[in-house]
């Protein structure tokens, strides 16, 4: 796959995290999920976040996705301070700036593909005509132009994930945040989804992939390894055999 080596020039900084920590109180114990993580992500990057379970990978993803706020540290999203936003402001950022792709797809089971993809547009307050038009367009872009009136249980796993990707794209977000997007798919379908993601990257989207699978992470142009709440390695490219940073 020759495209894998083509790194598109990164744009301005989208995500700027400096020394963030996150602590949870579980019973009497304080769990320090992140112990001071700094990270910059630029527009048009394709980044994989890797790490074993308990490494703080999920916590970092929740931070990046503005689902949660850090205990301390600075987090700027497109120059705006996210760390101090309230729930509704965070919801607005998630709605406009972040496209989520989940391992379990998280589609509304009784709604059609179209209706599922419309959801972020509804929360953005777009009028119905433009909403339907836009949602149908994005569904066609991910290759489901003929499936817009199907419900999730009438679609295959790969098709469901395509609907979810369309939903993530529909508001034109700054980043696509994919959490184990192939985790519930067989490897062939998973590869197809990763091709779609590659395609999105080639069309100028910023991708953040959270995964523990090396084959999947290998699609990214940059890999961040987490261990025990700290960034262990942050390197460009991927060496599956060694899983070591290449020299810059």
């Amino acid at each position: 796959m020759e495209t894998r080596n083509s790194i598109r020039p990164p744009g301005p900084v989208v995500i700027d995290i400096e020394n963030i920590t996150k602590e949870y109180v579980m019973g009497e114990e304080v769990v320090r999920a992140l112990r001071g993580v700094s990270l910059q992500i630029r527009r048009n990057e394709y980044l994989a976040i890797m790490g074993p379970s308990g490494s703080g990978k999920s916590t970092l993803m929740n931070m990046l996705g503005c689902l949660d706020t850090p205990t301390s540290g600075r987090y700027e999203f497109n120059g705006k301070n996210v760390a101090e936003m309230d729930d509704d402001e965070l919801a607005a950022v998630r709605n406009r700036e972040i496209g989520f792709v989940f391992q379990t797809f998280n589609l509304l089971p009784r709604s059609t593909s179209l209706r599922n993809v419309e959801l972020p547009l509804i929360y953005a307050g777009i009028n119905p005509d433009r909403r339907v038009e836009r949602a149908a367009q994005v569904l066609a872009d991910v290759g489901l132009g003929d499936r817009i009136h199907h419900k999730p249980n009438e679609l295959s796993g790969g098709q469901r994930q395509r609907v979810a990707i369309a939903r993530a794209l529909v508001n034109g977000p700054s980043i696509i945040l994919a959490d184990e997007p192939t985790g519930n798919l067989d490897s062939k379908t998973g590869e197809e989804i990763m091709e779609l993601v590659e395609n999105l990257y080639q069309h100028g989207n910023t991708i953040i992939l959270v995964t523990h699978e090396r084959d999947i992470a290998a699609h990214a142009r940059r890999t961040v390894h987490l261990r025990d709440g700290l960034i262990e390695m942050d390197h460009v490219g991927f060496i599956p055999e060694l899983d070591l940073p290449v020299a810059r």
Binding site: G65, L67, D87, D88, A91, A92, R94, N95, R96, F100, F102, N106, L108, L119, P120, Y123, A124, R167, N171
Partner: peptide, 16 residues
């Protein structure tokens, strides 16, 4: 609950 989580992730505010 999960649906509510999804809706929130997609930008649903508390009021919504």
């Amino acid at each position: 609950t999960k649906e509510i989580g999804t809706r929130k992730a997609l930008g649903a505010r508390r009021r919504t």
